[in-house]
């Protein structure tokens, strides 16, 4: 038997119509799509080969041939930004996956069980929060060796308590509701209720937090690879490009300007997307409009 819950039903098309009227959502969505497309296109085509060094073309300013200029090895900056997008997106996305995959069940479990289990899980959460995230991520990557995989793990670990907290808070607000009581009366176990009724109702919350953590992950990855702890050369990464640019700021400022702008635009897009989704789907913010 399935229980059907009638929350003031919004049809998919009415949400969609609302979404297209929301400037933040549309802007964020378009930017995110463009960045994703850029990363995908880089697998089949880039203006230049990023692995080929053309020393005769080194540190050339932006031109028609090289829109964003070239670096100290004569590599095309635009091509490197395109390929670097893959790395940023992959690291941040998998880190969000780790955080959601472990954090959400933990948070939902804590909310469902309550009492001592809840208390214990939340204290562990506090423990992880007490460690400065960036410093710990740096420690993890420095100790276990630099590279994209360890960067993912380092960033992912600190996503876990974030999602656990959001999932728990969301679930706690759902549990006292009447339809949960009905599901209980129908003899469903708390795990079943968590999966079938609580999770769908906190999905929006998780989606919004997901885009925020995605954006933060991109910033964190850039920081790690700036310190030489992220993806290793020759694989281009936005943070590494900024590191290479630093000592050449006087002769080739474009080496620093464009990769940085790529980060800013990506993070901006994701944040706008998150704000937009929250705006569209959260009744509270709708009322405040």
């Amino acid at each position: 038997m399935t229980l059907h819950i009638d929350i003031p039903e919004e049809t998919f098309s009415s949400i969609l119509a609302k979404a297209f009227r929301n400037t933040a959502f549309v802007t964020g969505f378009v930017i995110t799509l463009l960045i994703l497309a850029m990363a995908v296109v880089s697998y089949i085509w880039t203006p230049y080969d990023v692995t080929k060094l053309v020393i005769s073309d080194k540190t050339q300013g932006p031109s028609l041939a090289h829109w964003f200029g070239t670096d100290h090895f004569g590599r095309d900056i635009l091509s490197m930004i395109m390929v670097g997008a893959r790395n940023s997106i992959a690291v941040a996305l998998v880190a969000v996956g780790i955080g959601m995959g472990i954090g959400v069940p933990l948070g939902a479990f804590a909310a469902a069980r309550g009492g001592l289990v809840d208390e214990a899980l939340m204290r562990i959460n506090d423990l992880v929060f007490a460690f400065p995230a960036l410093l710990s991520a740096i420690m993890i990557t420095a100790i276990f060796g630099p590279g994209a995989v360890n960067a993912i793990i380092a960033i992912g670990i600190f996503n876990i308590p974030v999602f656990a907290r959001v999932a728990r808070a969301g679930a706690l607000a759902i549990w006292p509701r009447e339809f949960i009581l009905a599901a209980r009366a129908a003899g469903k176990s708390s795990t079943q209720i968590s999966i079938e009724h609580v999770l769908p109702n906190i999905a929006t919350l998780l989606l919004v937090q997901g885009t925020i953590q995605f954006a933060l992950g991109i910033l964190a990855e850039a920081g790690l690879s700036y310190l030489g702890l992220g993806a290793q050369p020759p694989m281009p990464s936005w943070g590494r490009m900024l590191f290479d640019a630093q000592t050449r700021m006087v002769v080739a400022p474009w080496m620093a300007i464009f990769p940085g702008m790529a980060i800013v635009i990506t993070v901006l897009g994701l944040n706008l997307l998150g704000d937009g989704i929250a705006d569209i789907l959260d009744p509270k913010s709708r009322r405040q409009r």
Binding site: A222, L242, Q246, M249, A256, P259, G260, V264, I265, N271
Partner: peptide, 18 residues
């Protein structure tokens, strides 16, 4: 503010240095 949140502080630092 939305833009400021998106700026990595070390990139902003490089621009300030420049």
């Amino acid at each position: 503010a939305q833009l400021g949140v998106a700026v990595p502080n070390f990139w902003f630092a490089l621009m300030l240095i420049y």
